[in-house]
Amino acid sequence: MNQRTLAAHESLEIHEALNLKTLGLAKSKLVQGLVFDQELKALMQKDVEQSLEAIAELQALYQRSPFQAPVPQNRPTPIIN
């Protein structure tokens, strides 16, 4: 992969995607505590795992941004495990 710095518009798009994925992750974790159907809960857990992977990939791309906003290292935890 090319390691050059991203253009400003590319950096903003990655930042927006990162925000979207982070909000989706928080929502999935929150709603998991309210769901009683085990099949749905398993699907939501799979979504959480895939979102964490996507966030990690986006963070790696975001490192090439010419400007950065801090990305929090902590992740939301479910209300009920």
Rank of each mutant, 00 (worst) to 15 (best):
G33D: 08
R64D: 05
E13I: 08
Y62V: 06
A60I: 09
Q38H: 07
K46L: 15
A26D: 07
H15F: 11
F36H: 12
K41A: 11
L34I: 07
P66R: 06
V35N: 01
L25V: 01
K29A: 05
L6C: 08
Q50C: 03
E16W: 12
T77V: 13
P76R: 03
A8Q: 09
Y62H: 06
D47A: 14
Q45V: 09
E49N: 13
T22S: 15
I14H: 00
H15V: 01
A8K: 10
E53C: 04
Q59A: 14
P78R: 03
R75P: 01
E13K: 14
T77P: 01
R4C: 04
L18A: 08
R4A: 11
L58M: 14
S28W: 00
K41R: 15
T22I: 07
V35K: 00
R4T: 07
N19V: 12
K27R: 07
L43N: 13
P72S: 12
P70F: 03
A7T: 15
K41Q: 09
I55K: 01
Q63R: 13
A26K: 04
L52V: 08
P72D: 10
S11F: 00
Q73F: 03
F67V: 09
N74C: 02
M44Y: 03
K29W: 02
Q38M: 10
H9W: 11
E16Q: 15
A60Y: 06
E13V: 07
S28N: 08
R75A: 13
H9N: 12
V35R: 01
A69K: 09
N74G: 02
I14Y: 00
Y62L: 05
Q59N: 12
A42P: 02
A69T: 08
E13C: 11
H15L: 10
M1K: 12
Q32N: 12
R75M: 15
L30A: 10
A26N: 08
L34W: 10
V35E: 04
N81E: 11
Q45R: 12
M1L: 12
K46C: 05
V35D: 00
E57G: 05
P72R: 13
A54F: 02
R4Y: 03
Q50P: 01
Q3H: 14
I79N: 05
K41W: 01
L61G: 06
I80V: 13
N2W: 05
V35A: 05
S28C: 05
A26Q: 09
K41F: 02
Q50Y: 05
E57A: 14
Q68Y: 02
K46Y: 09
Q50V: 05
